[in-house]
């Protein structure tokens, strides 16, 4: 059942991201919701599931609005792995750690995307505007994701419980 819910979360985020968030901007920049849910999944789910979730989220973004198919998928997988490692080493329940790791994860994903895209022909100057955009989106994702962690973690625990219940009761 929880995989169905993960899929629905992914679909809702994708629709929100592509159709719903043009009104939500921070200094002219949009939040990266699919990246955000991948980072949150990396903090909540076991590593393999988090990587698969990140891959699916990135691939969905690539297929629907992406320019390079599987580039976002690859970036999201790498960032989910790094995020998972960071959260294992630090106390993830602390909101400063959560905010920091979400912001840094977003920044890392954007830098990786721009570097990879540049190597495939989408060059972009690394001027102040680019760094400002990375900083703004990273902070935006940090602010949005930090309060979302607890409800999502609770939802995941509940889903695990129901799955176990279904398995035992048949």
């Amino acid at each position: 059942m929880r995989y169905l819910v993960y899929g629905l979360v992914l679909l809702l985020t994708l629709v929100l991201q592509t159709a719903g968030v043009p009104g939500i901007v921070f200094f002219g920049f949009k939040p990266q919701l699919l990246l955000l849910v991948s980072l949150l999944a990396a903090m909540i789910l076991p590593p393999v599931e988090a990587v698969v979730f990140g891959f699916c989220a990135g691939l969905a973004q690539d297929l629907v609005v992406g320019r390079f198919i599987t580039l976002h998928a690859g970036v999201f997988v790498l960032v989910a792995l790094v995020e998972g490692l960071v959260i294992q080493r630090f106390y993830g329940e602390n909101f400063i750690v959560r905010f920091g790791s979400l912001s840094l994860g977003t920044a890392l994903a954007q830098v990786l995307y721009l570097l990879a895209a540049a190597s495939f022909g989408l060059s972009r100057s690394w001027d102040l505007g680019t760094w400002w955009a990375i900083l703004a989106v990273s902070l935006f994702n940090g602010f949005l994701g930090t309060p979302l962690y607890r409800p999502l973690a609770r939802l995941n625990r509940r889903l695990l419980y129901y799955d176990e219940l279904l398995k035992r009761t048949g």
């Binding site: 991201q17 592509t18 159709a19 973004q61 609005v65 992406g66 721009l114 989408l122």
Partner: peptide
């Protein structure tokens, strides 16, 4: 217009 690119590096609409 039913959608926009979620990326801050691309300006596209659907």
């Amino acid at each position: 217009v039913i959608g926009r690119s979620p990326s801050n590096w691309e300006s596209t609409i659907i």
